[in-house]
Design a protein around this nucleic acid. Sequence first.
DNA 1: ACCGTCCTGACAGTAACTCTCAAGTGGGAG
DNA 2: CTCCCACTTGAGAGTTACTGTCAGGACGGT
Lengths: 220, 220
Amino acid sequence: MRCMAPARTEPADDTAADTDLPPAKPSLRERKKIQTRQAIRRTAYRLFEKQGYDATPVDQIAEEAEVSPSTVFRYFPTKEDIVLTDEYDPLIEETLRQRPPNEPPVTALREALYSSIARIYQADAAETLQRIRLIREVPALRGRMSEHSAETAWLLRRALAERTGRAEDDLELRIVTGAMLGALMEAMYSWVDTGTAGTLEDLRALVTRALGVLERGLTL
Amino acid sequence: MRCMAPARTEPADDTAADTDLPPAKPSLRERKKIQTRQAIRRTAYRLFEKQGYDATPVDQIAEEAEVSPSTVFRYFPTKEDIVLTDEYDPLIEETLRQRPPNEPPVTALREALYSSIARIYQADAAETLQRIRLIREVPALRGRMSEHSAETAWLLRRALAERTGRAEDDLELRIVTGAMLGALMEAMYSWVDTGTAGTLEDLRALVTRALGVLERGLTL
DNA sequence: ACCGTCCTGACAGTAACTCTCAAGTGGGAG
DNA sequence: CTCCCACTTGAGAGTTACTGTCAGGACGGT
C-alpha cells in the first residue's frame, strides 16, 4: 500500500466524536450518520485485531460493515484515519486556556495534559488502549500520528505564546513544545508496553515522571 | 497516494551513501549502481522542486531518469525513501561511542550530534537544505521522518543505556531521548525557516540554544 | 403528498507499490 | 578470448488506496 498525501481536508464538521453523548437528540439523519461511523470503526477495529491492519483492505471493512467502499472514504479520508480520529486537540486547547494565567507555562501544560488524558481515556478505555497499541505497531499509523502531533505542537505553542507574550515562532517555545511532546509520546509507548492493561493511574505516574525529568533538565 | 507499510526491508547493504567517495574503486557494476541511484535521486529532486512532490508520479521520475519504474522501486522501496535515504544513524552511533565514557550522557549526546550534523551538512549542503525543506512541507515525508526518528531514538537509548548501566527500556532514558529528538527536530525546522539559506553556524547556534533550554529544565 | 437537500452506491480512473519472468550485462574461470 | 554464472534490468500483470462523478433513494420541512 502507500500513503500519499491527499488533500487531507478533514471533515472536522459537525459529526461529533462518537464517544460523547450530548443529551440533545439530533435528527434521524444525524443519528444514522453517527451509527454508520461507529459501525465502520467498530468493524475495522475488529478486523484489525483479527488479521492485522495491513492485511485488512478497506473493501473488506466496507463489506462487513455493510456499506459501500465509497462510504467508508466519505467518513474517513484515509484508512489511517479510521484509527486516528481524534478531536482531542480542541479539548486540550480549551483545558489549557482555563488554567490560571499566572501559572508557569510548563505547569499549566502539565495540568492541562493530565486532565485531557484522563477524559480521553475514560471515554472508552478499551478502545483507547487498542488504538495506542495499533499506533505503536503499525509504522504507517505511527508516522501519521507524529505528523499529527506536529499540529498539536503548533497549537500548544500558540497557547504558550499567548501566555508568555512571546512570538508564535519563538525558538524557545518550539523547543519546549517539541521536547514535551517527544517525551510524552515515549511515556505513552512505555505505558502500552507495561503489561497489556495500562491503567489511568499508571499513565498519570508516567506522565509525572516524564515531566519531572524534563523539569530537572534531563538529568538522570 | 497512500503509504502502506510494506516489508520496509531497507536494502541497507553495501550501496554506500552517494555522498561520500571512498578512495577504493569498486567494481564497474557497483559504480553503475551508484550512478543509477544518483540519477534517480537527482531527477526526483529536480522534479519535486519544479512541480511539487505529490504532483510528481514515480513513472515520470523513471522516465526522465531513463530507467524503468521497477528499477526505481528496486533502489528505493518507497517514493518517500527517495528523499529520506539516510545512513546517518550508524554515523551518529559511532561518533557517540567515541566520546569519553566518563562524560555526562547529555553532554556526550550533544557533542556527538554536533559533529554528526556538521558532517552531514558538509557532505552536500544544497541537497541537505532541499531535503529538510521537503520534509517540512510534505506531510507524508514529515510523518515518515518522525517514524524514522523513533528508530534513532532507540539507537540513542541503547548507547545511553550502555553508558549509564541502565536498562534499555528505562523510562527516564526514553524520556531523555524522546525530548532531545523532539527538540532537535524543532530546531531543524526553525533552521530552514530562517531565510532561505541556513548556514552551519546558524544550525550550531540553534542546536546549542535548543539543548540549553533542555538543560535548564524548559524554563523560558 | 410534494420537493429540495443530503446521503449512498456503482463505476471509472489514477498512482503507489509487488511479483514474476525473460533478456541483457559484468566478471571471473578456463 | 570465450564461455558461463550471477547479478541487474525492463516489461507486464495484479493489488490496494484513494478520487471524482453521477443517478437513485431517503429525510425533513412545507
